[in-house]
Design a protein around this nucleic acid. Structure first.
Lengths: 345, 345
DNA sequence: CGTAGTTACCGAAACGCTTCGGTACGGAGA
DNA sequence: TCTCCGTACCGAAGCGTTTCGGTAACTACG
């Protein structure tokens, strides 16, 4: 196995200087078409492929972006958002020769260190920030580190960096309206963890939609984005004097957990309580009853956020901008029904 | 924001040559302790952090490993294996200053190209090979590319490269024995996709355990590792003349889908049919009835496979070796019961 | 025919590190 | 006192690119 060809080999074989070979192979002006083609041919013959390392050194680019995910158990294991999101990222960056470095952080404090290392070692040219918290310290951190970053954030927040929006709030509005249309007037909400901006967005959407309809927002349960959180929410709900006729959950997993919890207590869904989710995960189609939800488009979010990041890397001083990623359709399921036609069996 | 310090700055500030600074900071002999400490102090003062790029160029190392996952929808979205596995990898490699590059491949043919690119651009020093197929072309590919690789594979197969084993087959044996102990004699198997070596390992374990018990292996359903595959398997099972009294599924997701399918058809689980899974995913605890399964330890698998890969990168000519990663405990659930005491309601 | 402008190419420096051969200096041994 | 060797350090080369200033040759124009 002979050592791989360098650009010097190509230049020598083509009878040109090293710099000419570089210019020719990178497709920039200053070389005659004939020479360029000859050099290209030689490169192909020698199976030349440029050394990313050497190029990195001189262009000061890592040709990779970073993505730090916190709490792998919750986010990756359960949240199907993740897979499609990653796939979307890759679609966006691979054409540019970029690659994604994935880090998992066991805790919030270690997350900061990971970003620091990523920045100091210059391993990545930029990062994607997801799972945004209230007063998320990462925002200041990336600024301080001079690390280009794009955030995935609700449309409602405004940050000092480029954002890819997916309006989960808009989805909740649609779901609440659907329930209102069916006749529900007592609509509870199982919220996500209170320190996530995504939770707040969804809660606000639920609340304001009900207020707009002239209703007082029903019980609000602090839940979470996991199945177990949904199940716990069921218990809390059952401890109330009045069981609402419908529950809008922050996401599908919580909704599935909630349904399981309600059913375990003998509550009929949707007969006694209607339940909605958000995300459109595959699992929702396998529950009984099938979950009514709105399809999120994590692949699109990933694709758009990543391509925004590439733009930002090219123009670091660009003013922050935002892109709205469209939601998917509502997915109707048997988990909702008009209120009051079910027994309490 | 002034440019970051280079090793030349450190050397100058410490009044030594560049090479001495390098030697001192890398902790190798040839420098007096006093000088070494002085250089270290200067480095700290200047907030020097070595350029990975420059180092990469000269040491010919990328300081990163690659992991290509195929079919993100199936593997990442649904399979909770993934999150823990990744986390385990990171634990193993981060101490060595390594990082993981994650690629997703939409199709098998593109997977090969991804490995090729990874190798040609020398972006990674080695790769982890998971989700092994029968006659997997990646094995020859990495050899051809000279890319160090460690495979995650069943104990039963022998490959020409280092392997991290997790004996899913052993888990299946335990589950089948448990069912036998409960009195079951008619035990079916919902297998995974036939081209995965993991499927074959599990099927073989089911089959041989039954034969050892003097039984003829019951119906074998070609299923899959997903919930929908499990649900389809339920239909196939229901079309048989005799419904087995127990079904051993290739993994938890299939088991959950199977249970859902059986229940939808009015079959009581475990009254009429007992069901077991394998993986120990969180979801299994939220199904009704709770799933009996064996806990896999994907984080350990990831950790061990990754550290094996680092060893291999250090000693590329080392003979292939194998490490067995212990399984977790059996998790009992209400999805199994003695046969024949349930109604067909 | 002389000169300015363009085109096509070359040479060398630079990116920031590691590594290896070499040198000065001190002490040990004869 | 001379030689030898180990220690502590230095200088320079090299990793494989990109980039920039420079130089021939060629065209166009008066």
């Amino acid at each position: 196995m002979r050592p791989r060809a360098t650009i010097a080999d190509v230049a020598a074989a083509a009878g040109v200087s090293l710099s000419t070979a570089s210019v020719a192979l990178n497709g920039r002006p200053g070389v005659s078409e004939a020479t360029r083609e000859r050099i290209r041919q030689v490169a192909r013959d020698l199976e030349y492929s440029p050394s990313l390392r050497a190029r990195s050194l001189v262009t000061k680019r890592a040709y990779s972006i970073g993505f730090v995910v916190q709490s792998p158990a919750t986010v990756m294991s359960a949240d199907p958002f993740f897979g499609s999101f990653i796939a979307g990222i890759q679609v966006a960056i691979s054409a540019a020769g970029y690659v994604m470095v994935l880090l998992v952080s066991p805790s919030l404090s270690q997350t900061e260190d990971l970003y620091r290392e990523l920045a100091q070692s210059r391993r990545v040219d930029g990062v994607l920030i997801d799972q945004l918290r209230v007063n998320d310290r990462r925002l200041e951190l990336v600024r301080e580190l001079g690390l280009p970053a794009v955030a995935i954030a609700p449309s409602s927040v405004t940050l000092p960096l480029p954002m890819a929006h997916q309006s989960a709030g808009g989805a909740i509005v649609r779901l609440v309206r659907r329930l209102l249309h069916l006749g529900h007037r007592d609509i509870a909400h199982v919220a996500g963890p209170p320190d996530y901006v995504h939770s707040i967005e969804r809660r606000d959407a639920w609340e304001s939609t009900l207020r707009q309809a002239g209703l007082t927002p029903g019980p609000l349960i602090q839940g979470g984005f996991t199945m177990s959180a949904g199940q716990l929410a069921a218990e809390e709900l059952l401890a109330l004097q009045h069981l609402p006729t419908a529950v809008v959950c922050a996401n599908d997993l919580a909704a599935i957990g909630l349904i399981a919890g309600l059913q375990a207590a003998g509550i009929d869904v949707p007969g006694r309580v209607s339940v909605t989710g958000f995300d459109g995960i595959e699992l929702g189609a396998y529950t009984t009853p099938k979950l009514t939800t709105v399809q999120a488009t994590p692949d699109q979010v990933g694709r758009i956020a990543a391509s925004m990041l590439l733009e930002l890397i090219d123009q670091p001083d660009r003013q922050p901008w935002a892109v709205e990623v469209p939601l998917g359709p509502m997915i109707p399921g048997a988990s909702v029904a008009p209120p009051g036609n079910g027994s309490d069996l």
